[in-house]
Simulated assay, not measured.
Amino acid sequence: MIDSSARKNVETKKYNGYLSFLPPSDTISQEESPLTIHIDQASQNHYRKYHNRDFCWFEFKHALTDQPYPFKIETKDNYLWILIQLLGSGKIEITPTLYVKDGIVYCYYAPNRTKALSLDPGKNWFFLLGIAEHHWPDLAAEYPLLQDIGKLETTDGMEHKQLVGQTAIQAKLMAALDSLRRFEFRSFSLSFRLAAWNLRLFNLVFQELKAPEKPQEDTLITLYHKATNYIRENFREEELCVKMIANAMHVSVRKLYSSFENRRFSVMGYVQELRLVLARNILTDSQETIASIAFVCHFSSDKHFSRLFKKRFGKGPNEYRIAIQGNISFKYKR
C-alpha cells in the first residue's frame, strides 16, 4: 500500500514531456478554450495542452494501469490531427477505427467534434497537434496528399476513410520535438513561437506521409466485383479469357484468380455460367438447333455443350426445350 504522503509525491511529480515548459492547464489564463480534455482527476498532472485560434497542442505521458484507459478530446471546431505515438498503443474512434502503435506518426481527421481515444495498459506517451479547419485549403494547396481532407461524402454516399496517412518517426522529427525543451512559457510570444515550430513539423511529416494502403481483403473484394461486371458485359465475346480479363482489370492473372477464391464460380466458371444461361434463354422460345446454339454461345462442340447444360440444369438441351415449350412443369437446379 502507498501511504497518502507517497501518493501525493507521485501525483505532484514534475511533468517531463516535450511540453514541460507549460504549466498545468488550469493555471494558464487563456481565452475560452476550443479544446477540452475529459480525463480522470488522477491523470491531471500527466498531460499538457495549449491552444490558439489556429492550433491545439496536447501531450500525454503516463504509465497506465492494467486496464485500457479511455478519455475524450472535445473541440469547438474540426481539426486535422497529427498524432506522434512515442510509446504505447491504443485506438482512436474514427472511420474505420485507427489502431495506433509506437514509433509511428498518424495524420487523421474526424467530422464529429468529440474524439474518443483508448490507450492500452503500460507506458504511454503521445504528442498531438490539431490544425483548425480554416487552414485546410492552404495546407492542401501546399501538400497534395491533403487535397481530400474534409470531403466526407462520395458519389455513392459512403464516407471516405478518415486516416489521411502515416509514416515512421524519423530522427529529424525527434530533434524537432527535443527543440521544444528549450521553449519558455511567455504568455504573449508563445503562440507565435509554437506556430513557427509547426512549419518545421509540417515539412517533416507531410512530405514523408504515405496514404494508407487498402487492406488486401478490401482490394480483392473490389477487384471481384469489377471483374464480374466486366464479364457480364463481355461474355458474348468468343475470345474472352482469363488473361484478357486480368489485362482489363490491370492486375496479374494470379491476383484475378485470388479475387475469385471461395466464390461460387471461378473466373471462367462465371463466363461459362453466363453462356449457359444465355443458351437456356434461347432454348426457351426458339427452334434453333443444339449445334447452332452451342456455336453462338461459344462452346467447343454440341456434345460438350449438352453435357455442361445437363449438369447445370438437370436435363439436356432438347429435354429442356420440350419441357418448357410444351408447358410441362420443370424446375432446374439452383
Results as ranks from 00 to 15, higher is better:
102 D>A: 15
102 D>C: 10
102 D>Y: 11
102 D>L: 08
104 I>Y: 11
104 I>D: 10
104 I>P: 09
104 I>Q: 13
105 V>Q: 04
105 V>D: 03
107 C>N: 09
108 Y>C: 10
108 Y>V: 09
108 Y>H: 12
108 Y>R: 08
108 Y>M: 11
108 Y>N: 08
109 Y>D: 12
110 A>D: 14
110 A>H: 15
110 A>P: 05
110 A>W: 10
111 P>C: 03
112 N>S: 13
112 N>C: 08
113 R>A: 06
114 T>W: 08
114 T>G: 12
114 T>Q: 15
114 T>M: 13
114 T>K: 14
114 T>S: 14
115 K>S: 13
115 K>V: 15
116 A>S: 15
116 A>D: 15
116 A>K: 15
117 L>Y: 12
117 L>D: 08
117 L>H: 09
117 L>V: 11
118 S>H: 09
120 D>S: 11
121 P>L: 02
121 P>S: 05
121 P>R: 01
122 G>W: 01
122 G>E: 02
123 K>Q: 14
123 K>W: 11
124 N>S: 14
124 N>C: 13
124 N>T: 12
125 W>V: 02
125 W>E: 09
125 W>Y: 11
125 W>L: 05
125 W>Q: 09
125 W>I: 02
125 W>A: 06
126 F>D: 07
126 F>K: 02
127 F>K: 06
128 L>I: 10
128 L>C: 12
129 L>M: 11
130 G>W: 01
130 G>V: 02
130 G>D: 04
130 G>R: 02
130 G>H: 03
132 A>Y: 04
132 A>G: 09
133 E>C: 07
134 H>A: 05
135 H>C: 03
135 H>V: 00
135 H>R: 10
136 W>F: 06
137 P>L: 01
137 P>G: 00
137 P>F: 01
137 P>V: 01
138 D>T: 14
139 L>T: 00
139 L>G: 02
139 L>Q: 02
139 L>M: 06
140 A>Q: 00
140 A>G: 00
141 A>I: 04
141 A>K: 13
142 E>H: 10
142 E>L: 11
142 E>N: 14
142 E>F: 07
143 Y>G: 02
143 Y>K: 03
143 Y>T: 00
144 P>Q: 00
144 P>M: 00
145 L>C: 03
145 L>R: 04
146 L>H: 06
146 L>N: 05
146 L>Y: 04
147 Q>G: 05
147 Q>H: 10
148 D>S: 08
148 D>Q: 08
148 D>E: 11
149 I>G: 00
149 I>Y: 01
149 I>F: 00
149 I>D: 00
150 G>S: 04
